[in-house]
Design a protein around this nucleic acid. Structure first.
Lengths: 151, 151
DNA sequence: GAATCAATTGACCTATACGTCAAACAGTGA
DNA sequence: TCACTGTTTGACGTATAGGTCAATTGATTC
């Protein structure tokens, strides 16, 4: 089965931010990934775009969801983990206390894991800064507390 | 080619911390990974244990290196990235200014990337806490600012 | 209405990071 | 000495995360 275009002629606006609906190529370009990757995520049930004439159409919510996925990936989560993540983000609306309790427990776990990662990163950063500092001191033309070209 | 044991009878001490040398199984157990994983890392040139009668023998430095690898993995680095990481950790000793300069540049890049990840995690944590908070408020028996069973 | 162009599904391929045997071999204890 | 345990290399299998190609289809343009 094929589908139609959703090319440069956007559904409503043409600005990159004022848009409401997006084609798969738009999102791919915006996030610097391939359409294959986006379709792969859909296959893994991470995003559920609408279909128009067989073509995928993404809302802002879909786009935000994709952004969440990519952010989580950068942090080091697997797609399976991300899938559970996304459930938490979606589930807040309503639901019985049972569901709420579940979300509370899961978010608590996720928070704990991220806090641990945060600590590991902090430690690593400290070490890297020490290494860099040690190197700089051995570099010719070094003067202690050289903040002349500080960032 | 085969090899000999390095079993429960440790090279020197038997305590888990006072040790100086370790067998592959010791490290595997200590870090909760398999020996296969450790051998895989060696195959990728991430660790270079000594050999005694064909069997791998790990020093404290090797053990620290393995710890670095696993920490970096948790943070979300690939083994290739970790390989470069480890080069930086090893290279600080001496070397010409050229090498020092290289290390300074690479550590700077690594630091920037980690700082970015740190921010992403901060953002995610903030959102997760909000979600959890929102759920808790909808939970029965909730009283605002309920710190009665705080961690 | 034929060409073109973007998008679709399906199939197969790739790289990473290991898991899982299998066969061989080295020490140790009985 | 023989069995047993732990280790070695090698080979193959698996899960994840996509890349790449092919054939098709649908909307737009000429």
């Amino acid at each position: 089965m094929g589908a139609g275009p959703a090319g440069s002629m956007a559904s409503k606006d043409s600005g990159p931010e004022g848009r409401e609906l997006f084609g798969i190529a738009d999102l791919a370009e915006e996030f610097g990934i391939t359409t294959r990757t986006i379709r792969f995520y859909e296959n893994k049930n991470l995003i559920h775009p609408a279909r128009v004439n067989g073509s995928r159409v993404y809302t802002r919510r879909d786009r935000a969801r994709l952004a969440l996925i990519l952010r989580a990936k950068t942090i080091g989560s697997s797609l399976v983990q991300i899938s559970h993540f996304l459930d938490l983000y979606g589930e807040q609306g309503e639901g019985r206390a049972e569901q709420m309790d579940y979300v509370v427990r899961e978010t608590t776990k996720a928070i704990a894991e991220l806090e641990m990662k945060q600590e590991l990163i902090r430690d690593t950063l400290k070490e890297l800064r020490e290494i860099r500092q040690g190197c700089m001191e051995r570099l010719p033309g070094y003067t202690p507390a050289d903040n002349s070209h500080k960032v």
